[in-house]
Design a binder for these strands. Structure first.
Lengths: 142, 142
DNA sequence: CTCCCTGCAAATCCTTTGCATACAG
DNA sequence: CTGTATGCAAAGGATTTGCAGGGAG
């Protein structure tokens, strides 16, 4: 099976031990269309791994994100979400329903740092655009 | 006293009832140099309002941010922070020490939204730049 | 064989909620 | 007066931690 092998390879290549749980979690994220929360992962894998604990999911996603296989995105309140898309990209967040969409910047940001932060070494940045998604716009009383 | 009056005026102007706690909280934020957490506010006002409860602080900052007197910023993990600077601006976050700096964009972002989000109505956006602040850079073992 | 991962439960942190009382307008 | 804010305590959700046993390399 191609997909399963991918997860294993990715883990090995990242220098992580390959355990059934890790493989399943990574595979789940690879297949998942969207941005999964820890709970999404945990719940969805209950069938196959009834004994898997939440902390394992937390441990795993934390390590996956440390080795750069996934990206943690924490927008607004509630649970963090995990994104298999590790390319630099950003997010639209619907303030009504919480939906999350990826988007890309047409050009990189240019920032002017204040004197106190002179010399700040930028590692990464993330743009969170808040607004109303098309679906919620339609449902608005007009 | 000039400063105290400011807080009262701001509250009145925003249509909020003026209570001693609200006045103190808003005043604290006006004077605070940085981005205070609920706990910062709560702790700092313990002297003057030993009986003030945490929920009052939460209630108050929530309302202040609803009327636009402060801005809530939630970066990464941990507690939300509140910013008296309500102009559109963005933040540098130090991944080592958690320090937070304001910055401004030299020009607004231009985004390309994906087809699924066609028609997304942008209300606001916030850029979170992660990296190493000058102080932490110096302390790095070199 | 060794060390890391897992599972479990408890703990922690941040935030919200319900309700009775007190106070601003 | 009336309605809202306050204080208190308890609940809630997300995440972390400690520890013993199990499995990967």
């Amino acid at each position: 099976m191609q997909a399963q092998k991918d997860a294993v390879q990715l883990l090995k290549h990242a220098g992580l031990r390959v355990t059934p749980q890790r493989e399943a979690i990574l595979q789940f994220l690879l297949d998942y269309d969207g941005h999964a929360t820890v709970d999404d992962i945990y719940t969805s894998l209950q069938d196959r791994f009834p004994s898997m604990s939440v902390s394992t999911v937390y441990n795993t996603v934390k390590q996956l994100s440390q080795v750069g296989l996934v990206k943690e995105i924490g927008v607004g309140d509630g649970a963090s979400r995990f994104d298999i898309n590790v390319e630099p990209h950003h997010h639209l967040v619907c303030t009504r329903c919480g939906a999350l969409f990826d988007f890309y910047l047409e050009e990189p940001i240019r920032l002017s740092v204040p004197p106190e932060a002179e010399g700040f070494e930028v590692e990464d940045y993330h743009v969170e655009v808040r607004g109303v998604c098309p679906r919620c716009k339609k449902q608005q009383v007009s």
